[in-house]
Every structure is written in C-alpha cells, then in structure tokens.
Amino acid sequence: MLDLINVSMTFNPGTPNAKQALSDFSVHLDDGDFVTIIGSNGAGKSTMFNAIAGTFFVDSGSIKLGGQDITYLPEHKRSRIIGRMFQDPLKGTAPSMSIEENLALAYLRSGEGFSPFSHISNRDKQEFREKLSLLGMGLEDRMKQPVGLLSGGQRQALTLLMATMVTPKLLLLDEHTAALDPGTADKVIELTKDIVNKNRITCMMITHNMKQALEIGNRTFLMSNGKVVYDVKGEERSKLTVNDLLDKFKAGTGQALDNDRMLLS
C-alpha cells in the first residue's frame, strides 16, 4: 500500500544547523494496516509524515502510495488520497466558516463531479447531517454556526470527519488527541477506531501514550534518529507490555526513550 524506499531528508544542509531528519528510511505498509508510532523527541516522526504528505520534497528516495509514485506530487494533489490530522485542533478547520461550509470543502477531495461554480445542495446537506450525527456531539443541529465557536474536541472530531469524509488511501494522525482533555481524547480515539475500521483505511498514528500505542492498531513502530528501530506486529505485539517496549528501545538505540510528553500509563 505505502512504500517509502531509501528516503533521506536533511534540513539546512551545509550549515552548522544541518539536521538529517530521515536517513535512508524505508518502510512498507500493507493494505489496511493501522500503525502506531512512538519515539523520542526529534526522532523524525513528524518529518516522516511531512514527507509522505508532501509538505516538502525529500532529498532522495521514493514514496509510493497504492502503486502510484507520489515522490514529486505537490501537497495539495496528495491530499486527495491522504487524510491528515494535527495535534492542534485549530489547524484542520476554517474558523470563520460554518460547519456546513467546512464539510463542503472536505468534500472537494473527491475531485470529480463538481463544477467549481456549484453550490452546496440540499442532498449534500442531508449527507452532512447524517455524518455529523455519527459523532454524537449534536453538531448536526449547528451546521450554520461558524466552526470557531466549537470546543477543541468538537473541532478535532469535525476534522476527523473531514479527513475521512472522502475515504483516503492513507490517514496520518499526528498526536491528534494530545491537546484534548482525557475524556474528549478517549471519545476522539473511539471515533477514530470506528471510522478507520469501518472504512478499512490504512492509517498511521503518532502517539505519546505507550499503552495506547500497543492497544490500538495492528502494528507498532519505535523510531529514533530518523530510523525505525523496532517494528512489531502480530503475536509478538499482542504479548508486548509497556516495559518490554522501553527495553526494546534501549536495545535498539543504546539509550533510554526520551520524550517529554511520554505517558507510560
């Protein structure tokens, strides 16, 4: 499904600040994989996401998604097949536009069948209502309200809906619940699991919660210094505990896992 082949990326090359964020990075994801990713600060987790999403073009190597080579595809074109969520709930929605208008924009990702001059139809509105009611937050009755009035959790749930409204080939979740209070975070995680399972979306999720990293999905990456140092799935993963994971990290890198937001619970 997703292949990163020998991808390298250095920021500020040739300066004292040069930082090799990804070095000869290769990874393969199967169709329907749900990978959780943990790693120390600066391990290259978000850089890997940025490389896949096309925030920058990589120095070398190639990126393939669903058989298509997307290495040099611009970001806005990749976003047709890649859904993405950030930690900051403000990043995924347009605050001064209504819920309905935000959803209509997300719907543009389906790409075809829309004239640029078409308006939001009643049928679209009906569909938006149905999808919003699945969130169980009562947003379906507030479709005309600007998104800026919603809480962080509501905005993040809405962003999740927008990212998956047109089923993406790949969903990238970058600590998308880290800025929410625990209750809301749980709710958004449940919604994420529901939507990903129902649509069989291939998904990668960065998290700082080690327990969550083992519970959700079918595969886990440990990342350090721009490399995956431990890749686990199947039976081996189901037996793993948080302490095992810490040991694996030490074995893989020779140092303790260092992430200032890491939760061991």
């Binding site: 929605t93 605050p95 208008e101």
Partner: peptide, 17 residues
C-alpha cells in the same frame, strides 16, 4: 468557499486538495 478558506486557514486548504 475555497477562496474564503484560503484566507481563513491555509493548512486546512492544502489538506483539502
């Protein structure tokens, strides 16, 4: 709507193709 979103949230616009 796309034009309005561009002035409102550029990150979101790129993520919406």
């Amino acid at each position: 709507l796309s034009i309005r979103a561009t002035g409102d949230n550029l990150d979101m616009v790129r993520a919406s193709s």
